[in-house]
C-alpha cells in the first residue's frame, strides 16, 4: 500500500553505474515507501537489472547516495543483507534437493532456528497446497510451483524488503495471476516489494511504477496518474508513448 506519508525504505540519489563508457544507470533518483509494491519497469537492456543488483549489494555503484532499509549501502552492507530477500528470474533453487531441503537450506543461511524452520515450512506447504511434494526433488515439480517456492524462500526470513527481478518470466498467465496474489499477501504483511518486469499488465498491480528508458527514469507515479498524464487507456500505451519519445 502506497502512503505518501510513510517512511522512505529505499532512498536513491543520483545513482550512476558505468561499465567502461557505457552508462547503464544515468543519475537515478527515487524513493520507495515502506509497505508499497514498487514496479520497476523498462525494456530489456534499460538498466533495471543493473539497478536491482546494486540495491541488493551484488554490485557497487559508480557514484550516488543509496540507503536500503535505513542502512547505507557502502558502509552497512551486512545489515542490509539481513533485511532483504531476493528472487531472480531463474527461480534459483537446487534441482537435486527436495522441496523441504531447499527451504531448510535457505532458511538456515539466514540463521533461522530448526524449530522455526520446521514450523514455517509446514505452514508454507499448506499454503501452497504442496504437502505431498515435501520430499520431491525440485526438478520433478512443475515450473509454477518452483516459482512460488522461490518467492516463499525469498521471504522466509521475514525481510523488510523483497527484490523480485523479473519473477514471472516464462510462466502462463494463470500462474502469473496466482503469483501476484502471493505478492499482495506479502505486501499486506508489511513487506515492501520492489519488482522489475516487462509485462505491462503487471504494472497495473503495482502501487507505483517507475519506467526506465535508456538508463534514465522517464516517468514515476501511480499507474492511474501515469495513464491520466499520458492520456492512455493502459500502462502498455504509457510505455509505448515513452519509448516513442525516446526513438524520436
Amino acid at each position: 500500500m502506497y502512503k505518501p506519508e510513510a517512511e522512505n525504505i529505499i532512498i536513491v540519489k543520483d545513482l550512476v553505474k558505468k561499465f567502461g563508457s557505457f552508462v547503464a544507470n544515468d543519475h537515478l533518483s527515487f524513493e520507495v515507501k515502506k509497505g508499497e509494491i514498487f514496479g520497476f519497469l523498462g525494456a530489456n537492456g534499460a538498466g533495471k537489472t543493473t539497478a536491482i543488483k546494486i540495491l541488493c549489494g551484488l554490485s557497487y555503484p559508480t557514484s550516488g547516495h543509496l540507503m536500503v532499509g535505513g542502512f547505507d549501502i557502502y558502509r552497512e552492507r551486512e545489515k542490509i543483507k539481513r533485511n532483504i530477500g531476493y528472487m531472480s528470474q531463474k527461480f534459483s533453487l537446487y534441482d537435486d534437493l527436495t522441496v523441504f531441503e531447499n527451504i531448510r537450506f535457505y532458511a538456515g543461511i539466514y540463521g533461522l532456528r530448526r524449530n522455526v524452520i520446521e514450523e514455517r515450512s509446514r505452514d508454507l506447504m499448506e499454503k501452497l497446497d504442496m504437502k505431498d511434494a515435501r520430499d520431491k526433488l525440485i526438478r520433478d515439480i512443475p515450473l509454477g510451483w518452483k516459482q512460488k517456492m522461490a518467492f516463499s524462500v525469498a521471504i522466509i526470513h521475514n525481510p523488510k524488503i523483497v527484490f523480485l527481478d523479473e519473477p514471472t518470466g516464462g510462466v502462463d498467465p494463470v500462474t502469473r495471476r496466482q503469483f501476484w496474489d502471493m505478492i499482495f499477501e506479502a505486501s499486506h504483511e508489511g513487506i515492501t516489494v520492489f519488482v522489475t518486469t516487462h509485462y505491462m499488465d503487471e504494472a497495473e498491480y503495482c502501487d507505483r511504477v517507475s519506467i526506465m528508458v535508456d538508463g534514465k527514469i522517464a516517468a514515476l507515479d501511480t499507474p492511474e496518474k501515469l495513464k491520466k498524464d499520458y492520456g492512455a487507456g493502459s500502462m502498455n500505451e504509457v510505455f509505448l508513448k515513452l519509448a516513442r519519445v525516446k526513438v524520436n
Partner: peptide, 13 residues
C-alpha cells in the same frame, strides 16, 4: 549457472 550464487551473495553469508 543456476543463479543460486546470486542468492547466496545476497544472503548474510
Amino acid at each position: 549457472e543456476l543463479g543460486t550464487m546470486e542468492l547466496l551473495l545476497v544472503s548474510p553469508l
